[in-house]
């Protein structure tokens, strides 16, 4: 579903990604861990072209996102084409990024109506179903400011799912939440994983990673240091950097 080949990315002089290569199979759940500044979030944002890449290739479902290849070089796609490909990749942000001027339902139906041209009535109906599924049937007409962090993040997940994505990216979805609200968001993500959604999750929720992840990828200083199934990587990390990191967070 996702194939990344030797991806490089720099912000000015700072090289944030220094050759990231990984593959994610359809239906797989991959959890990205690593110290802050290791490039996890940047890599995630490169997958749906919220950031440009300087070298390498990222394919989603066999297609480059945001680029065409011309004579072996990357050429940025037209905006409409970029938008079309992004629509198939859902993203959930650390700070929710709900649209504050729209209700919960408004947040969920906006993109289906504008981007997919779904009739409003139909969009509202599926939107209500999606919000019900994340346990917010009674909050349809609430504005984001009236919702708790956990509720906001669940709306954000429903909003991303409303575009029927084939891949979901989660950028530290629970790290801005009060501890007692983390569980409700993780529950929604777990059930999504059980339904077979392909997911790449940047998170330090080790319980979630152990229970749901098919594979853990440890990044540091812009490269993938080590990867493997959770039990293996958590219990028997082979690299000293992984060991040092895990000893701090476990």
């Amino acid at each position: 579903m996702v194939r990344s080949v030797d991806v490089h990315k720099r912000f000015g002089r700072l090289e944030v990604l220094r050759g990231v290569s990984m593959e994610v199979a359809k239906g797989e759940v991959v959890v990205l861990i690593g110290p802050s500044g290791s490039g996890k979030t940047t890599f995630l944002r490169c997958i749906n072209h919220l950031e440009r890449i300087d070298a390498g290739r990222i394919y989603v479902d066999g297609e480059l996102v945001g680029y065409r290849e011309k004579n072996g070089r990357l050429v940025e796609d037209r905006e409409r084409e970029v938008a079309r490909k992004r629509a198939a990749i859902g993203m959930v942000f650390q700070r929710f990024n709900l649209f504050p001027h729209l209700t919960a339902l408004g947040n969920v139906i906006e993109a289906p109506i504008r981007v997919k041209k779904v009739p409003r009535k139909e969009a509202e109906e599926t939107g209500r179903e999606r919000l019900t599924k994340v346990g917010l049937a009674d909050k349809l007409s609430a504005y984001p400011a009236q919702l708790s962090g956990g509720q906001q993040q669940r709306v954000a997940i429903a909003r991303a799912l409303a575009m029927q994505p084939k891949l979901m990216l989660f950028d530290e979805p629970t790290s801005a939440l009060d501890p007692e609200l983390v569980g409700e968001v993780l529950d929604v993500m777990k059930s999504l994983a059980r339904e077979g959604m392909t997911m790449i999750v940047v998170s330090h929720e080790m319980g979630f990673a152990r229970e749901v992840a098919d594979r853990i990828v440890f990044m540091d200083e812009g490269v993938i240091v080590e990867e493997g199934p959770p039990e293996e990587l958590f219990l028997r990390p082979s690299q000293p950097r992984t060991q040092a990191f895990l000893s701090k967070i476990l």
Binding site: L50, E79, R86, M91, E110
Partner: peptide, 27 residues
């Protein structure tokens, strides 16, 4: 308007113009 609003709009497949009209300008 927070940069995250544009990120969210784009991640949902909106073009710059759609994001501007529907998400950024109202705020």
């Amino acid at each position: 308007v927070e940069a995250g609003q544009m990120d969210a709009a784009k991640s949902l497949g909106m073009t710059n113009m759609q994001a501007l009209r529907r998400i950024i300008l109202p705020q």
